[in-house]
Design a protein around this nucleic acid. Structure first.
Lengths: 343, 343
DNA sequence: TTGTATGCGTTATCAT
DNA sequence: ATGATAACGCATACAA
């Protein structure tokens, strides 16, 4: 069958033990013998058997990425960041989708992880999800992305700061009647949505502007939801001059609602979102962008550290990556309004 | 350490061999002993060691998905389809991104696949890519998505038919001066682009409409490219009344170019794309949609068949999944034009 | 139907 | 620095 370590050992005139050491770059191998072994292995086109290696060493050389979605922008972008780091580290990436409250029923991920991987990366599962609890109970090195939990390494943005930055931007532009398109009451994004809203509250307080709850609507974190929410706000006797959507996708919907009402984003009503979604540039949407791929990269790196260090103390800090306000055409100073809404 | 098959065997009062058979559902095991073993295994919370199993059996229980991109719509959507099928089959999914002509340098995928996986799924690599050749040379069960190759199982759409359907739609609406936004000259999408264009040619021939090469521009399969291409077409003395973009993303760019020129998609110029991109509904873009997630699902299923059947003859047929014309607001009958361009 | 025994290809421990 | 060898945990051919 295939070439084994023994073939290499015989061809190089050494024992399998030495081959194993040489190939893994362990220190106590003579430079010349190592070279010889390396060239022999290359010549024979030898590749190690991961199963045998895992069985003997106890390490699998792979980590799992557990995510509720694969095809959505945020998740696939995180995944690409994760992949690049793991690839460089020579570690295999096991992709594992999990069911969500709304989603299709799937096998629980935790049992599939045991004995399979050396570490786990979890993307944006709701903090209270029992599946997440089961994963953490495995005791594997774990790193969270897009959610934070005490005692577990995590990488995310400061959602409060993000919401605050968005609100401050609108306030700086002179807006006072600021509407809000909030998320739904359940789901993974809920936590982030609440934090972002809290940031909005802080900014409004700091600016001494009263929050008008009549100017708030729910968009359930979808484009359609955002559109309906915006339509509701526009039907108000005195609509807001600016709207803060808790996510870019909801902001997309808001943009469309504006167009359908014959209004110009920016000129008639300012819209800002949060996320830095791929399409936000195309739609000329102002947003507070989060470095999504970096989230994945950082989390992967943090995981690698955990996997290498034998049970280091709780260096398990949650990391916040900085967001970036991106000003585009959808937000303008209140004076720049055409006045169609405020005659 | 962890529970092994021997622990289960002892607790159940049988041999490890029987446990192995019982757990894998092999036929020659007494119903009662199997039941006993199953319950004992559950009680002990036993999970099999994949490494040991692989080493002994030669099967890894996992397949690799090789893709040039992870975060792009087409690829992540295919991936989600693949994942759902593999998940159901209890097979692990190893995600492996490869470098593309333009992309960052990465390890070649083929060596990483040897001894690691039982099969390979390849997404939309250029047919001539040497990395693809290396993968095929591995001799593993392989299934291609979004590209077809002789002697290898593959799932994709009929790009010629897709291009033809798009052109036919415009022709049916009465358009005769039909512009085309073609792709670039290199890259993975090139092949599909050429086939789609060929479909366009066929439809035009069938309708006895001459193709005006002056109405063609290149968009390099990006939004920006599409926008520039559309701008070029609009600057013509006699612009087209309708434009067929070889991909939705380029059509997005075309839509933006229209808006920037103060023109209405559909009313002033009709635009149609190909893909059925997530955002095409939002942008009210007519398109020939391909069932992208189904592509992934079908390919995964085809791969599973290959993996199960021991070297069956070349049932390796290329499968074409049907596309679907989706008519939206961006295409209208030529008579419906405001006449701004054709006074 | 069930048990026995060997092999799968490495790693790691202990010598040398 | 190198070698011999015992695990690692399971699958399977062969016996019973």
């Amino acid at each position: 069958m295939a070439i084994t370590i023994k073939d290499v050992a015989d061809a190089a005139g050494v024992s399998t033990a030495t081959v194993s050491r040489a190939l893994r770059g362990l220190p106590n191998v003579d430079a010349l013998t190592r070279e010889r072994i390396l060239s022999v292995a290359a010549e024979l086109d030898y590749v190690i058997s991961p199963s045998a290696s895992s069985l003997a060493s106890g390490r699998t050389g792979s980590v799992a990425v557990v995510t509720p979605y694969i095809a959505r922008w945020y998740f696939s972008t995180v995944l690409s960041g994760v992949e690049s780091v793991l690839q460089s580290a020579g570690i295999d990436l096991l992709l594992m989708s999990v069911s969500t409250p709304e989603g299709a029923i799937r096998l629980p991920p935790a049992p599939r992880l045991r004995r399979r991987v050396d570490g786990v990366l979890v993307i944006a599962l709701p903090p209270g999800d029992p599946q997440l609890g089961d994963i953490l109970a495995l005791g594997l090195p774990t790193s969270l992305i897009g959610l934070a939990l005490d005692g577990v390494a995590s990488v995310s943005i400061d959602d409060v700061a993000a919401g605050r930055a968005a609100a401050q931007h609108l306030l700086t532009l002179g807006h006072r009647r600021i509407g809000v398109i909030r998320g739904g009451l359940s789901g993974a994004s809920q936590t982030a949505g609440q934090a972002r809203y809290h940031g909005f509250e802080l900014a409004m307080q700091e600016a001494n502007v009263e929050i008008d709850l009549a100017l708030q609507a729910h968009g359930h974190f979808t484009i359609e939801g955002g559109e309906q929410a915006m339509a509701a706000l526009l039907s108000l006797p005195r609509p807001p001059t600016a709207v803060f959507a808790m996510s870019d996708e909801m902001a997309f919907g808001a943009l469309r609602a504006l167009r359908r009402h014959g209004l110009q984003p920016g000129a008639d009503v300012s819209i800002i979102g949060v996320d830095g979604h791929d399409m936000s540039e195309f739609l000329d949407l102002s947003t507070v962008a989060q470095p999504v791929a970096d989230l994945g990269r950082s989390a992967a790196e943090a995981l690698l550290v955990q996997m290498r260090s034998p049970a280091t103390g709780p260096s398990h800090r949650g990391i916040h990556l900085p967001t970036r306000l991106i000003v585009r055409g959808s937000t303008r100073a209140v004076g720049a309004s055409t006045g169609r809404l405020e005659p």
